[in-house]
Design a binder for these strands. Structure first.
Lengths: 359, 359
DNA sequence: GTTAATTTGTCAAGCGATTGCCAAAATGTG
DNA sequence: CACATTTTGGCAATCGCTTGACAAATTAAC
């Protein structure tokens, strides 16, 4: 056995264990291209990434070879030396909730447009699971978007130190956040309710660990005081149809004529409970939701709700992250990334679940 | 200086390492652990992946070091030598459609449970864009799930040769597919309609490039013939609320007393158009949808629809892919992966958009 | 025609894991 | 106590791509 034979055999052994198993014609690498085009791999890499760095003719030859071999860059392999994965992670509290699907949609489209891939993970409303998931995706993404984070401020900050991170629907000092301006929508809602003669209203709160529920409660309190309305808080409750449903008895007991729910899901749940109890909406009870999710205009009566620019928020989150990622290496765009040309405002959508107050 | 001192000092040295840019204390690697534990990197790798392969005491020491450094495995780095990414790609025709969100939910949960990550991409109902996305995610996933694929059979097969692939809601020979059994639901729907005195019904078709639309049309035709019902097909149309809305005039013109729509979105759109035109549902027109998406029971009247086990299908898709991935290397589970203990059946959910036929 | 400046492409060292092969250490056997 | 086994851990190559440093080739300048 000559040494060449030995090499050959070693070579054979080194082959990735019969990777052509059940399926899998092997993907072409830059080495294959290099061989075909008669250049070195590094030249291929340059031809593909730094147009102009090498001779135009070889560049063309390389591109041709790449096409011929149906070359596809391996993102994992690229990620190793560069540290950039071109992937973003999005953590949702609950995929089931249409609110989140809308945010995902906005984010996904924006990410795709910028050539980024979106990974999604769900925490199922648990802070613990959230920390876990975040940790899991962390190494494989360039940035993380938290939607309705359930973990603690410290935990979030901890992650924010490791990778660019933006939080949707929750405020945190020193962390990029995306929060719509609640004031216009809430003010309109309260004005609308006051116009209809309501003087005593209730807020159907969401989970305690939801920052946004607190914010809505707060804003509601502020504006109702200003308008001289009485505000009762019912809850906390789970932010789902069932959560809204379950609150119905307490709503009735509270004696209010109007309810603003933490979100549309709860509003709709409440609405249905009311209907099942032949409790007229809006005759005896006006209901206002939050977010204007898909389907909130299907109900009967269609839901009056404070619309939140969900898709836009997802989009914006991606843009922010990308700005952070970029400025990390390029040091290019002056850090004024947070300057929003976009205005994240809320507005009241009046439909028919709100009406004149019963007396 | 004893070796313990050395370890301690190594500990100190292992700190910050100044690579911190704008953010980013550097993630610990197995090399860091190795240094801290006083072993070689390969030993660390073994300790972490092949419990029992090394001495229990060193293994413990390594685990302690890993915890101390908050070690997190880098999936990219692992993917390179192993070829396995622990990531699955899911391609949707349209994220906006609640049908798809439900499938995503099922898939995401199952994937998470099995320790896999889900990447999602959207083709926005375009075959071209779909091929592109598929190609893009291909190198970074262990398998691909296509939901409502819009690309050609050949293109799908092409991808199927490169990576494990399963297709939801579309049939293709020689490719793993997940398709619910339409017969029970459709038969029930037709029986229900016939019972109510309808003799002439219409199918509101979806896009031509949707295999599922064809399948539903086909099954409808088969069962209505058997029952002696007249079936008209209206369409094709876009599978959205607007698509359903747009079809209203043609439905009226066709003179049928009942319509089965390609999906709930179209059904709901049609329903709303009818209401706006004061065309009574179900008084003058009965409407049956498909899928039972979120919100289809919110409408008024609530939608009668053929339910599809969407979440289950997503879940199953993940299980299938995982079985394929597994059998590729392990050669473990006998290829009877396709044996479904699960039954993917459809059933009619009777609500109030269907009623006695007008004559 | 010689030297300086510029282009173009190759070398080789990583990135963070995994793994076959082998040597040293520990254990068992007669 | 010498020798055969089994454990345990390290070496080094590899996955596919990027990139700083440098040499060869080409072009420009004098």
């Amino acid at each position: 056995m000559t040494s060449e034979d030995a090499a050959t055999q070693a070579d054979v052994l080194a082959q990735p264990q019969s990777r052509a198993g059940r399926n899998g014609r092997q993907a072409a690498t830059i080495y294959d291209i290099a061989k075909l085009a008669g250049v070195s791999p590094s030249t291929v890499s340059r031809a593909l990434n730094k147009p102009g760095r090498i001779n135009i003719k070889t560049e063309e030859r390389i591109h041709a070879a790449a096409k011929q071999l149906k070359y596809r860059l391996n993102p994992m392999a690229r990620a190793l030396p560069t540290g950039r994965t071109n992937t973003l992670g999005m953590l949702l509290a609950d995929i089931t909730n249409p609110v989140f699907s809308t945010v995902v949609r906005g984010a996904q489209r924006e990410a795709a447009e910028r050539g980024f891939t979106l990974i999604i993970a769900e925490s199922q409303e648990s802070g613990q699971r959230e920390v876990l998931s975040a940790g899991n995706v962390l190494p494989s993404v360039d940035g993380i978007i938290l939607v309705g984070a359930r973990m603690s401020d410290e935990e979030i900050k901890d992650f924010a130190e490791q990778k660019p991170l933006v939080v949707i629907n929750r405020f945190l000092p020193d962390v990029e956040t995306i929060i719509p301006d609640l004031d216009p929508g809430i003010d309109q809602a309260l004005a609308h309710l006051a116009d209809l003669g309501h003087t005593s209203i209730a807020f159907l709160a969401g989970p305690t660990n939801s920052w946004m529920s607190g914010a809505r409660s707060e804003a509601l309190r502020k504006h109702s005081e200003r308008r001289g309305l009485t505000l009762t808080e019912i809850g906390p409750g789970v932010p789902t149809l069932d959560g809204g449903r379950a609150a119905f008895p307490r709503v009735v007991a509270s004696g209010v004529t109007a309810v603003v729910a933490y979100n549309d899901l709860m509003a709709i749940g409440l609405l249905r409970a009311a209907q099942e109890a032949d409790y007229l909406v809006p005759g005896r009870l006006s209901i206002v939701g939050f977010d204007d999710i898909f389907g909130s205009d299907f109900t009967s009566p269609p839901l009056t709700t404070v619309r939140t620019p969900l898709a836009l928020m997802g989009e914006l989150a991606v843009r922010r992250i990308l700005a952070m990622v970029g400025s990390r290496s390029d040091g290019d765009s002056p850090s004024g990334a947070s300057s929003d040309l976009v205005n994240l405002t809320t507005e009241l959508i009046i439909r028919r679940s709100s009406g004149r107050a019963a007396r």
